[in-house]
Design a protein around this nucleic acid. Structure first.
Lengths: 201, 201, 201, 201
DNA sequence: AGGTAAACGAGACGGTACGTCGCGTCTTTCA
DNA sequence: TGAAAGACGCGACGTACCGTCTCGTTTACCT
């Protein structure tokens, strides 16, 4: 009788397990190279050499340089993962702060440079923008329910305007991107969709 | 039979009859390949072979594949060049219509994926977004002057919200992009920045 | 001094004994692959997978693919091992018959393709050619002693001529290799070294 | 009208011609590495690096390491090419002298270790052995015609015995290979096939 | 019966070399 | 004299095997 019959838990697959040391050395090397030379110059050969690892070891975990780059950028986001903000302003400021870093710009760049049909693109789009948009939608819907926002407001458009403004400034850099944008955009948008305060008769 | 038999007169100087033909053959090949395989797979070798042209001939006119791609996308924009719109709605609808094509999406993609410091980037940014934004700014400023819009409105934020919403949908494709977005965004934004209609005392 | 010196019987080393099933599965897989793809394409990975065996199990018994190939070719030669022929013709015919098979050609190929200084080479050389040559030398020396062959005959040359002819045809394939070659070569060689039949005075 | 109409000679194809400097640098590097590490360790990567050449440049001229090795061994044989010997002894001694060098042994080894169906094999076989065998056949046939050799002698067997003895010693190295072998083998063989000197009745 | 130790399957590891692709530059020949 | 053709040095690609190394499991022996 094998132990397995009694253990509910995950049964490790046969064979030598993946070396966590190698795995993290690769990610570390990739992250450093992203900082130093950017995603376009991130080559598997260089990462392998820098991590002291054979190329096949990299390919065993990632299919190409882009996937590796994505992993290197995303993985360390073991950060608390934004505990779901309560207000739109907090949400927007948080997103701005997370994007307006070197890594944030890299994420946006990866998003932009990946094939628009690929998994990579979707993963990034979700992680960078759409998840926050989802949270924002929930907040807005609550405000609709509470009567603070007009029922016929085009919430999708509102959200895209706010998140779009952030992305636009991040990508184009034609205007500074900081928390004040969140405040301005929110003010404009909320004024645009709040319930009319009718004048007292 | 050579052409020369018919052109008696005007003896052309030795050897450059091909120039315009090659040039446009290259652009044509590049455009086709952009359609077929996307900008990432647009290689100089392939374009040269497809255009029946030597690689150096390409390099004589463009420094690398990205510049060629830009040229291939932009050049045929011999379209009337948007004769300066009078209202924001016309402006936005026009931009949406121009971007919401395969070529438009490609332009946005090239913009997003090019190095943010390069000439290419600036050229695209200007051509795709900033010029329209400039026109929009003029219109908004006129409305401020006319008193329709509050004097303290953050016009830059408003413009980025409207153009950002368009770019976001174009790049992410999570919501449909059409003229109705212009209408909604404009409605929200204008309501957000219009002068308060104070109630009569 | 180990106990083994005193115990007559075979003392099995502690632990799980080598699995005969695996051992022969490996050899079988190796033999099949030799047939199918030849010695150059015989890879340890493929043999392991085909035999349903881990690579270390192979390396526990053979140091590399060549040794495995040698073993795979030689092992099944549990054939009676040529009970030492009595005449040169029987010897030669036997060698021709043993070489002139797929396995024989593979043996010659292995011989040829192994490093000329390695153990493998010597093992093959011995097994394929030199052992038979040794037997032939004994026979010829007996004939010298009996007076049938001239005492000053260069026996080494004679043997190399006969065996060399066989090898040449085996490797080059420019002429058919069969028992008739043994007959012809022997006839020529023996006539070349037999004692002159002087004419009676 | 171009010169080509009048010149029968080879018309050089358009484009940059193959660089003779690179070509010979590659062959030189390959030859040196063959001397130093043998054919098994002759890798394209190493040859490319040593010759100061890109790998594709090598692959443009040779399909793999074996072909390159063959070329490296054969090419410099711009030697006078053995002006067809008149006697068997001269022929054999010449072959022994040409084979009994490092390069000769390498040629024989390449011959023996190449796939017996490939072009490579045939080219080597011809160059190394069969051409000489052809010449030998002509000489023997002349001797048959002159009556010095018995008409029913198996000439093919005789030739294979002589050339085989040489190849055998070259490959196996179990006996020294020098001109004396030619003498011994020839003596044995000729005695074996000469016309019987019948005793006077 | 229980312990112990070798051999097992599986498979990931650091490497080396493979043969290909695309770059951007160069050299030639032709028109 | 400009342009086609195409070879060049370079460097990264992704794959195939190498021979080694853990793993957890199995199988026999020796207490």
């Amino acid at each position: 009788m094998s132990k397995a019959e009694f253990t509910q838990e995950f049964r490790r697959p046969a064979g030598r397990p993946k070396s966590m040391a190698s795995h993290s050395a690769i990610l570390k090397a990739a992250r450093e190279m992203l900082e130093e030379v950017g995603p376009a110059r991130l080559t598997i050969d260089a990462v392998a050499k820098r991590a002291g690892v054979g190329k096949p070891t990299i390919y065993r975990s990632w299919a190409n340089a882009q996937e590796l780059a994505m992993a290197a950028i995303i993985e360390p986001s073991s950060q608390p993962e934004a505990p779901k903000a309560k207000t739109l302003e907090v949400l927007l400021v948080d997103i701005i702060e997370r994007l307006n870093t070197k890594r944030g710009r890299q994420m946006a760049l990866m998003l932009a440079s990946s094939e628009p049909d690929g998994e990579l693109f979707k993963a990034f789009a979700n992680r960078v923008v759409l998840r926050g948009r989802q949270d924002g939608l929930a907040i807005l819907e609550a405000q609709v329910a509470s009567g603070a926002v007009r029922a016929d407001a085009n919430l999708a458009a509102v959200l895209d305007m706010m998140f779009g403004a952030i992305m636009l400034r991040l990508l184009l850099g034609h205007e500074t991107l900081d928390a004040s944008l969140a405040k301005s955009a929110l003010e404009i948008a909320m004024r645009g969709i709040q319930k009319d305060e009718t004048c007292p008769a």
